[in-house]
Computed example of a mutant assay.
Amino acid sequence: MLKVIFYTKEVCSLCDDAKALLLMLQHDYPFELEERDIYTNDAWLEEYQLLIPFVKINDTTLDCEQVNIVSLEEALKENV
């Protein structure tokens, strides 16, 4: 099954919106969603602090400025 890694943090409205989009798309494109709170890992915090919400689908990555319904759906279609 396809695995989507979602880098996030608590109290982040953009992250909440991105998660809602992912959960909506999960109905049409089955995938496992792994949420990673960047504050639980120093390496994640350093790498993704300014990029969250950050989504990784295989080799496709989308940062906060790229995450939207169109880009997420395209990335899922490419990787299913």
Score class of each variant (00 low, 15 high):
Met1Ala: 05
Met1Cys: 10
Lys3Pro: 04
Lys3Val: 14
Lys3His: 12
Val4Arg: 02
Val4Ala: 00
Ile5Trp: 10
Ile5His: 04
Ile5Gln: 08
Phe6Ile: 01
Tyr7Arg: 00
Tyr7His: 06
Thr8Cys: 09
Thr8Leu: 03
Glu10Phe: 10
Cys12Ala: 01
Cys12Trp: 04
Cys12Gln: 06
Ser13Ala: 09
Ser13Gln: 04
Leu14Trp: 06
Leu14Ile: 08
Cys15Asn: 02
Asp16Ala: 05
Asp17Lys: 02
Ala18Ser: 09
Lys19Ile: 07
Ala20Cys: 07
Ala20Met: 09
Leu22Pro: 02
Leu22Ser: 00
Leu23Glu: 04
Leu23Lys: 12
Leu23Arg: 03
Leu23Gln: 10
Met24Arg: 14
Met24Val: 13
Met24His: 13
Leu25Lys: 03
Gln26Asp: 06
Gln26Trp: 00
His27Phe: 05
His27Asn: 14
Phe31Ile: 09
Phe31Ser: 06
Phe31His: 13
Glu32Arg: 10
Glu32Met: 01
Glu32Tyr: 07
Leu33Ile: 10
Leu33Arg: 04
Leu33Ala: 03
Glu34Ser: 15
Glu34Ile: 10
Glu35Phe: 11
Arg36Met: 09
Asp37Leu: 02
Asp37Gln: 08
Asp37Asn: 13
Asp37Val: 03
Asp37Trp: 03
Ile38Gln: 01
Ile38Asp: 00
Ile38Ser: 04
Ile38Tyr: 08
Tyr39Leu: 07
Thr40Asn: 15
Asn41His: 09
Asn41Met: 09
Asn41Asp: 15
Asp42Pro: 10
Asp42Arg: 05
Ala43Arg: 12
Ala43Trp: 06
Ala43Gln: 13
Trp44Met: 03
Trp44Gln: 08
Trp44Phe: 14
Trp44Leu: 05
Trp44Lys: 02
Leu45Ala: 14
Glu46Leu: 13
Glu46Val: 07
Glu47Arg: 11
Glu47Trp: 07
Tyr48Leu: 02
Gln49Gly: 10
Leu50Pro: 13
Leu50Ser: 05
Ile52Cys: 03
Pro53Ala: 05
Phe54Ser: 08
Phe54Leu: 03
Ile57Gln: 01
Ile57Asn: 02
Ile57Tyr: 00
Asn58Lys: 08
Asn58Asp: 15
Thr60Ser: 11
Thr60Lys: 09
Thr61Gly: 11
Thr61Cys: 15
Thr61Leu: 15
Thr61Trp: 03
Thr61Ile: 15
Leu62Pro: 01
Asp63Ile: 00
Asp63Met: 11
Asp63Trp: 01
Asp63Gln: 08
Asp63His: 11
Cys64Met: 09
Cys64Phe: 07
Glu65Arg: 14
Glu65Lys: 12
Gln66Tyr: 06
Val67Lys: 01
Val67Ser: 01
Asn68Asp: 15
Ile69Tyr: 15
Val70Cys: 13
Ser71His: 10
Ser71Arg: 09
Glu73Ala: 04
Glu73Ile: 06
Glu74Met: 13
Glu74Ser: 03
Ala75Met: 09
Leu76Trp: 04
Lys77Gly: 06
Glu78Leu: 13
Glu78Asn: 15
Glu78Pro: 15
Asn79Phe: 01
Val80Lys: 13
